[in-house]
Amino acid sequence: MRVVWIGALVSLLMITGCGEKRSPLESALYNQEGDRIGSVTLTEQSDGVEVKVQAEGLEAGPHGIHIHEFPKCEGPDFKSAGNHFNPTKKKHGLLNQKGAHVGDLPNLDVESSGSAKAKLMISGATLKDGQTSLLRKEGTSLVIHSEPDDGMSQPAGDSGDRVACAEITLNSDKDKASDPTDLNEKQKE
């Protein structure tokens, strides 16, 4: 009986990733100058991954926001994040009949104060293992662009420069400042 319990425990650990915490997963969001401007929290759901974004210091209006293929946020242009996350080889755009990339998201609306708070859903994505896992290989990143995504233009929705980036990895929660204003207060000291 003891052997059966040990076997079941080993199987459970293998299935759950040996204790890796994959959900919820929090990542710091940085601007082009390398300042922390917010956070991104990803939570596994039955129909995809929920993304909560909290940010400040952005220009008011709609901004394209996407998951990109590499977990690298090297400023100031964030080109290190690569292209949109597209493991299913679709066309870009939530309005495209041949789309969308797994990494395509609705635009992020930024208030006149420069702050944004949104809850978005990445349908078909997962934080578990698999083809559409945001944590496959080394991970991915979330990028906010300067302009809105038009939902159709190839390859990226004509959404302009990359202005903010968050790395999505199993270790992305190592920078634990609770919100950007807390971090800013600590930097003034």
Rank of each mutant, 00 (worst) to 15 (best):
P180Y: 03
L9F: 13
C18W: 15
G99A: 10
V53I: 01
P87S: 08
M14H: 06
G34L: 03
I15S: 11
D175H: 11
H92R: 07
S23C: 09
I6Q: 14
S141D: 04
P76G: 08
E56V: 01
S178A: 13
G160M: 09
A81F: 05
E167R: 14
M14T: 07
G17W: 10
S141I: 01
D77S: 14
V143A: 02
P180L: 04
I37K: 04
N107L: 12
T41K: 15
S146Y: 00
S27K: 04
E26W: 05
P180R: 04
G64S: 05
H63D: 02
F85A: 07
A28F: 02
G157T: 03
A116K: 04
H63Y: 03
D161N: 13
G124S: 08
L183W: 13
E59W: 01
R136E: 08
S153D: 11
H92L: 05
E26A: 12
N107W: 10
C73H: 07
A28V: 12
D179V: 00
K89T: 05
D77F: 03
M152W: 12
A156S: 12
S27A: 15
G34R: 03
S112T: 12
P71T: 10
A166L: 10
S46A: 15
G130Y: 08
C73G: 08
V10A: 15
P76A: 09
E147Q: 14
N83H: 12
Q131G: 00
L142K: 01
Y30C: 04
K91R: 13
K98I: 00
A116C: 07
P148W: 03
E56N: 01
P148E: 10
L105Q: 06
K174V: 09
D47N: 15
M14I: 11
I122H: 02
P87W: 09
N96C: 05
A177F: 15
H101G: 04
I67A: 09
E59P: 01
E111S: 15
R162P: 06
S112C: 00
T16M: 09
G19E: 08
D173L: 00
L29S: 05
Q45G: 09
V3L: 13
E26K: 14
K79V: 13
L94H: 07
K89P: 00
K128A: 15
A125G: 12
V102S: 06
S46W: 04
E185I: 07
E20L: 13
S39N: 14
L142E: 02
S27T: 06
S113W: 11
L134N: 02
A166T: 10
K52H: 01
K90A: 13
E74F: 08
A100C: 09
G103W: 06
P106K: 11
G82E: 10
P87N: 11
I37A: 04
L127G: 02
L12W: 10
G75H: 06
S159W: 02
V143N: 02
E74W: 05
D149R: 07
V102P: 00
D173F: 08
E56A: 02
Q45Y: 01
E111G: 03
N184E: 09
V110R: 04
G82S: 08
E33N: 13
K117N: 12
D47M: 06
Q45S: 11
G139S: 07
G61F: 03
G103C: 09
L135E: 02
A166S: 13
G93H: 06
Q97M: 02
L25A: 04
G114M: 10
